[in-house]
Design a binder for these strands. Sequence first.
RNA 1: GUCCCGUUCGUCUAGAGGCCUAGGACACCUGGUUUUCAUCCAGGCAACAGGGGUUCGACUCCCCUACGGGAUGCCA
Length: 465
Amino acid sequence: MTKITRFAPSPTGNLHIGGVRTALFNYVYAKQNNGKFLIRIEDTDAERSTREFEENIINGLKVLDIVSDETPIRQSERFNEYQEKTNEIINSGKAYYCECSKDRLDEIRSLQQQQGLKPQYDGKCRDLNLEKSENTVLRLKTPQEGASIFNDLIRGEVIFQNNELDDLILVRSDGSPTYHLCCVIDDRLQDITTVIRGEDHLSNTARQIHIQEAFGYPRLEYAHLPLVLGQNKKRLSKRDSVSSVHDYFDQGYLPTSIINMLARLGWSGGDKEIFSIDDLIKDFRIQEVQKGGAIFEPAKLDWINTNHLAALNFDKFKSKILPFLEKFKIDITSKNNSDDILQAMRTSQSTLFGIASDLRPYFHSIDSYDEKAVKKFLLNSKATLEYVQRKLQAIETWDEPSIDGVLSASQLALDLPIPKLNQPIRIAMTGSTKSPSLGLTLSLFEKDEVIKRISAALKYLSENS
RNA sequence: GUCCCGUUCGUCUAGAGGCCUAGGACACCUGGUUUUCAUCCAGGCAACAGGGGUUCGACUCCCCUACGGGAUGCCA
């Protein structure tokens, strides 16, 4: 059967990791069933919704290749539809106007809580047949007996006693429709078959079923995803340091890595750890997702990103790292062996940002040396640097084998442990003790540049010892 | 408080009554490769929340407790 799913964010914050996962599972489920994936902007909260957030969300998903099969609709632009449906439900007698003030509502709630009861509207206006006025809200006449039962693809049968749910508000006193109303109407109007959303909506499902029944709409298929938790075991929220997926993009995580990580969070298809969205469409089963919340661990993302980065062919890698090089003002056209440098350095770190950062010494002059490295290796290495500089200077064919030859000959001649010889040179060239093998590292520079940097290190030594 | 949902190594998970001496992955630790770093390879540490049942047998089924999360809005 063809499935139609939707991702229905409210644009009251940036697209965060949890939202991406919901969107992803909706997308994958639709694609597995020859269906459609839709994005619907639930911006009925005029106070908090912004176009900036809306763009952040849609663009973020686009980068991840999660694209709506139809132009996303905005609930704030569909008030006519809701109005029409609202009239329908009023005429059917399944909703009523309520004039209770917020103060009274607050009062009964705290009273109920004191008595150990579930706080809920007491139905004072339910049978008063009030007319609409400035201060009235429209409430649904929720069945007071019986239970609402639905089958959740992940959890199985879920039961809510109807007396646990109060008469929820469908239309606010300012005339605007609420989330629950719009959601049910749009799901119907868009022929949604399957609702995949966060666990925080579990009790909303019972409420929405009541609205569906008031309208005579058919039941939908539901799957409530466990929440993505932060290190504190609480759900990831906007308060967490890294909340927007865009932050992950900026740090140089590949979109494919983020998808991989999120899918693996709460689901596993055997022992396979590294996979693409196409693999997911092939292997993912919504029924297999874990029921408990999952803590998101950044270290695993690093490892996944390392793998996805390694799987890129060179041209692809190059195009991916380009924007990050720009951040460090690295111009790869400034050198004719840029590709060799990139190739040598592409595994240096687990993110594109990190790699780009490590690339700096190969394109810019060094402005400082790593302090620890200086103390451990550079100090007292004057004679070594001078000797090797002289030997390197004498090389006629500047390539890796010749350089390696000079380095090992020097090591023999000076009778030094290898690090004592190599590290000072490495520091002179890159500012730190980390780089590819020294012969390769040196061959990535022009001979003159190597001589110059060793001179600079010697100058530094004479000034600092 | 009340209702709902959940609970296997630090983390993500495998496990659908005997295949479990509980498997894999990340992280961590130890070696090896690499002249450093990263990569790679080998090995190691480490979990069924607790208590009752049911059963010849329970990580797997049932109940209770504990703990965690969610909901309880004229937010979505």
